[in-house]
Protein backbone atom coordinates (compact mmCIF):
# COMPACT_ATOMS: atom_id res chain seq x y z
CA UNK A 1 0.00 0.00 0.00
CA UNK A 2 2.81 2.45 0.88
CA UNK A 3 4.49 1.86 -2.47
CA UNK A 4 1.25 2.48 -4.32
CA UNK A 5 0.60 5.65 -2.34
CA UNK A 6 4.13 6.90 -2.92
CA UNK A 7 3.61 6.56 -6.63
CA UNK A 8 0.29 8.37 -6.36
CA UNK A 9 1.95 11.19 -4.47
CA UNK A 10 4.63 11.30 -7.16
CA UNK A 11 1.93 11.73 -9.79
CA UNK A 12 0.36 14.53 -7.77
CA UNK A 13 3.68 16.35 -7.53
CA UNK A 14 4.32 15.83 -11.21
CA UNK A 15 1.00 17.28 -12.28
CA UNK A 16 1.30 20.15 -9.80
CA UNK A 17 4.76 21.05 -11.06
CA UNK A 18 3.53 20.96 -14.61
CA UNK A 19 0.67 23.29 -13.78
CA UNK A 20 2.90 25.67 -11.90
CA UNK A 21 5.18 25.94 -14.89
CA UNK A 22 2.39 27.30 -17.06
CA UNK A 23 1.71 30.91 -17.90
CA UNK A 24 -1.73 31.37 -16.46
CA UNK A 25 -2.10 32.46 -12.87
CA UNK A 26 -5.21 30.39 -12.53
CA UNK A 27 -3.36 27.20 -13.39
CA UNK A 28 -0.63 28.05 -10.96
CA UNK A 29 -3.18 28.35 -8.19
CA UNK A 30 -4.54 24.97 -9.20
CA UNK A 31 -1.04 23.57 -9.07
CA UNK A 32 -0.69 24.94 -5.57
CA UNK A 33 -3.87 23.19 -4.47
CA UNK A 34 -2.73 19.89 -5.96
CA UNK A 35 0.77 20.07 -4.52
CA UNK A 36 -0.69 20.56 -1.06
CA UNK A 37 -2.84 17.46 -1.53
CA UNK A 38 0.35 15.63 -2.48
CA UNK A 39 2.16 16.83 0.61
CA UNK A 40 -0.69 15.83 2.91
CA UNK A 41 -0.92 12.36 1.46
CA UNK A 42 2.86 12.01 1.67
CA UNK A 43 2.83 12.80 5.38
CA UNK A 44 0.10 10.24 5.92
CA UNK A 45 1.91 7.61 3.88
CA UNK A 46 5.23 8.14 5.57
CA UNK A 47 3.56 7.72 8.95
CA UNK A 48 2.65 4.20 7.88
CA UNK A 49 -0.67 2.92 6.65
CA UNK A 50 -1.04 -0.06 8.96
CA UNK A 51 -4.47 -1.34 9.56
CA UNK A 52 -5.55 -0.22 12.92
CA UNK A 53 -8.52 1.45 14.47
CA UNK A 54 -9.10 5.18 14.06
CA UNK A 55 -7.33 7.07 16.85
CA UNK A 56 -10.32 7.20 19.16
CA UNK A 57 -9.81 5.65 22.58
CA UNK A 58 -13.42 4.67 22.84
CA UNK A 59 -12.75 1.94 20.28
CA UNK A 60 -10.92 -0.11 22.91
CA UNK A 61 -8.80 -1.61 20.13
CA UNK A 62 -5.46 -3.39 20.40
CA UNK A 63 -3.75 -1.02 17.97
CA UNK A 64 -4.60 2.36 16.54
CA UNK A 65 -3.37 4.23 13.52
CA UNK A 66 -0.72 6.81 14.25
CA UNK A 67 -2.46 10.03 15.49
CA UNK A 68 0.53 12.33 15.15
CA UNK A 69 0.67 12.58 11.32
CA UNK A 70 -3.05 13.17 11.34
CA UNK A 71 -2.65 16.12 13.67
CA UNK A 72 0.13 17.48 11.51
CA UNK A 73 -1.93 17.12 8.36
CA UNK A 74 -4.90 18.80 9.97
CA UNK A 75 -2.73 21.83 10.71
CA UNK A 76 -1.32 21.76 7.20
CA UNK A 77 -4.75 21.56 5.60
CA UNK A 78 -5.94 24.66 7.40
CA UNK A 79 -2.78 26.60 6.57
CA UNK A 80 -2.87 25.63 2.92
CA UNK A 81 -6.50 26.63 2.81
CA UNK A 82 -5.63 30.08 4.14
CA UNK A 83 -2.85 30.34 1.60
CA UNK A 84 -5.05 29.20 -1.27
CA UNK A 85 -7.73 31.70 -0.39
CA UNK A 86 -5.20 34.52 -0.22
CA UNK A 87 -3.46 33.59 -3.46
CA UNK A 88 -6.74 33.28 -5.21
CA UNK A 89 -7.81 36.75 -4.18
CA UNK A 90 -4.38 38.05 -5.11
CA UNK A 91 -4.74 36.53 -8.56
CA UNK A 92 -8.16 38.04 -8.89
CA UNK A 93 -6.83 41.47 -7.93
CA UNK A 94 -3.93 41.13 -10.32
CA UNK A 95 -6.33 40.34 -13.08
CA UNK A 96 -8.52 43.23 -12.05
CA UNK A 97 -5.62 45.65 -12.19
CA UNK A 98 -3.89 44.44 -15.33
CA UNK A 99 -6.69 42.77 -17.25
CA UNK A 100 -4.58 39.75 -17.96
CA UNK A 101 -3.70 36.53 -16.25
CA UNK A 102 -0.76 35.78 -18.52
CA UNK A 103 2.43 35.92 -16.49
CA UNK A 104 4.50 36.76 -19.54
CA UNK A 105 2.49 39.90 -20.00
CA UNK A 106 2.73 40.73 -16.32
CA UNK A 107 6.49 40.61 -16.53
CA UNK A 108 6.93 44.33 -17.11
CA UNK A 109 8.98 45.97 -19.82
CA UNK A 110 11.10 43.69 -21.91
CA UNK A 111 14.34 45.69 -21.50
CA UNK A 112 14.66 45.11 -17.82
Amino acid sequence: MEILMSITVGVLFMVATYLMLSRSIFRIVMGLVIISHGAHLLILTMGGLQNGMPPLLGQEAANYTDPLPQALILTAIVISFGLTAFVLVLAYRTYDAHKTDDLDQLRGTSDE
Binding site: G10, V15, L21, R27, L42, D102
Partner: peptide
Protein backbone atom coordinates in the same frame (compact mmCIF):
# COMPACT_ATOMS: atom_id res chain seq x y z
CA UNK B 1 -9.05 33.54 -22.80
CA UNK B 2 -8.98 29.80 -22.30
CA UNK B 3 -5.52 29.55 -23.67
CA UNK B 4 -4.34 26.15 -24.39
CA UNK B 5 -1.21 25.72 -22.27
CA UNK B 6 1.83 25.41 -24.41
CA UNK B 7 2.83 21.84 -24.23
CA UNK B 8 6.45 22.16 -23.66
CA UNK B 9 8.57 19.13 -23.56
CA UNK B 10 10.89 20.67 -21.02
CA UNK B 11 8.04 21.40 -18.66
CA UNK B 12 6.92 17.82 -18.96
CA UNK B 13 10.40 16.49 -18.34
CA UNK B 14 10.88 18.72 -15.31
CA UNK B 15 7.54 17.70 -13.85
CA UNK B 16 8.17 14.01 -14.42
CA UNK B 17 11.55 14.46 -12.77
CA UNK B 18 10.01 16.11 -9.74
CA UNK B 19 7.35 13.41 -9.46
CA UNK B 20 9.82 10.56 -9.78
CA UNK B 21 12.14 12.17 -7.28
CA UNK B 22 9.37 12.59 -4.70
CA UNK B 23 8.33 8.96 -5.12
CA UNK B 24 11.89 7.67 -4.85
CA UNK B 25 12.64 9.71 -1.76
CA UNK B 26 9.36 8.69 -0.17
CA UNK B 27 10.07 5.04 -0.80
Amino acid sequence: ERTKPRIQVTNAIISVGVGVMVTLIGL
